[in-house]
Design a protein around this nucleic acid. Structure first.
Lengths: 299, 299
DNA sequence: GGAGTTTCATGCCAAAAAATCATGAATTGA
DNA sequence: TCAATTCATGATTTTTTGGCATGAAACTCC
């Protein structure tokens, strides 16, 4: 069963304009086409909707009765479809992103500013999650997509690798290592090190690396949050080992970052979203902006 | 701009059945056709509605959002169209007929009974109007159509001549003229005549005819209503000159009708409806039944 | 883990539907 | 009465749609 929408649309237009010719013009068709549409519709319905002579067009009683409904059906449909197209074209809608803190701190603000400029009516909600909780939020659909440290592949998720975020040594301008282009892990023995604590994957990797370099992680400062680490460094307590992405989180210009090498270890920042689920236009636009912006690497 | 109804319909069906194949079956199409429809719809909208692998189909976020609306749009349209078709096929609806009394009395009941049998859910309203008021009711749209005595042609109305309704002499079984097959107007001089009064066209025609036959209408009985006339005749007061159509209005079997001739004058009973306006299916059905039934003539 | 089955997508073609052009018929109005 | 306007119709072209055969991916069942 095929719905005679064209016919109904033609009927409404003709009824409203009182003329085949004008309706045809309004619809961008020929008058002939409308004649055929109406004939087909009336044939399908088995009744007369328009009483027409060669000169005039008027609604039949049934047409009179049907017109309000018909007009509403067409209007509803048109508006519904049109709203969808607008949503698509302008990428209207809300976006929810789950992200690890480092990105939220450092790079997100720029992207958010640009996105707000391009899509002023869209709201963006940022879920700050640590570690595996990003993928969790994405998997559960709480977030449209996420930004996190790449982990082992997940059957339900698909990742877009963006950039490697190497670990760096953040030290005070006056620190002995501050002038170096890079520092070997093995050279860290002399420094008072500050590391991030908590259950984060970062801590484990850093401690593992220190052990491997023959630098047992004893007597170091372990802090809970990035701002604290910066504050300690700034106060000259020691140097901090952090992902480069966090570097800009401090507003301080008395700090210097030095790349840690031999080996250079890094986290891979990835965009992650559900496999087999497309993003909404609004989310897709934001996703794309993030991808482009974050591909620039960390300098 | 062409509304993508097919696509939306396909989308709804697929979403509800969770499968192209099953949806195709339900719609009486091949799976290929649905694939094409969805592709076209998504292209038109500029977004993804269904996330599909070769094996599974699921709603995308936008699809999820659109489905309720889409389903309602399709359902509304389908129901609206379906109701119209039913109205047409079963001629559902109310009918209003304006008619002169004689028809309402004599022939209408049979037709009404038959119509009520064929279209039990339809209500029929009978407007009893005298003379020109029938056409008035039809012209104003108060009645779908009318039954009346044919008059001069009217530009706004179109008539279907049904049957001639000759004037007859209604007399008591024992009346001297009761046995005759026909009676000349000129022979009425001896009889005590009863005629219908009021402003009806009948009265004028009868009196004109009597005058023409050299029978001035003096000292006759003039009554206001048909039943009274019958009662007088039945009581032996005299004979009544009435249209044959009224004959059966009495339930009496002691009365006899004799055709009046030389000349035989008659009223032409017509169905009348607005020109350039089609009848509703319900009215058309009733109109047709009346036409057939009343073409039988008056016996 | 491999074979078979199921499911959606695609290339190509046929069928069907829709639109158009040219023209006709009826009505209006100068 | 003539010109102009308006809707209908027949023939034709264009566009759209559906279908078949086939492919690729993924699930199931030994």
């Amino acid at each position: 069963m095929k719905l005679p929408v064209d016919g109904v649309q033609a009927f409404v237009q003709i009824a409203e304009l009182g003329s085949y010719r004008r309706a045809a013009e309004a619809l961008g068709l020929t008058q002939t086409a409308l004649t055929r549409r109406i004939q087909k519709l009336e044939g399908f319905l088995g009744l007369t909707l328009l009483d027409r002579t060669t000169r005039t067009v008027r609604l039949s009683p049934m047409g009179e009765e049907f017109l309000p409904l018909a007009a509403r059906l067409i209007a509803d449909f048109t508006h519904g479809i049109e709203r969808l197209r607008t949503t698509s074209r302008l990428a209207v809608g809300d976006v929810t992103v789950a992200t690890i803190q480092s990105i939220a701190f450092r790079r997100m603000p720029n992207v958010l500013r640009a996105y707000a400029c391009d899509y002023p009516q869209n709201r963006v909600q940022i879920l700050e999650r640590s570690g595996a909780l990003v993928t969790e939020a994405v998997r559960k659909g709480e977030a449209d997509f996420g930004i996190h440290i790449q982990q082992e592949p997940d059957a339900d998720l698909v990742e877009d690798r963006l950039v490697c975020d190497p670990f760096v040594l953040i030290c005070h301008r006056g620190h002995p290592l501050a002038g170096r282009g890079a520092v070997r892990w093995a050279e860290l023995g002399d420094a008072d090190l500050i590391t991030l604590g908590g259950a984060s994957g970062n801590r484990h990797r850093v401690e593992a690396q220190l052990r491997a370099a023959g630098q047992p992680p004893r007597g170091r400062f372990v802090v809970e949050s990035t701002p604290t680490a910066f504050a300690l460094v700034s106060a000259g307590i020691g140097a901090a080992i952090l992902p480069a992405a966090l570097q800009g989180a401090s507003q301080r210009d008395d700090l210097v970052a030095v790349l840690l090498i031999e080996p250079e270890i890094s986290r891979t920042i990835s965009l992650v979203r559900r496999r087999n689920t497309s993003l909404t236009p609004a989310a897709a636009a934001f996703y794309e902006m993030l991808r482009v912006e974050l591909s620039g690497g960390f300098g």
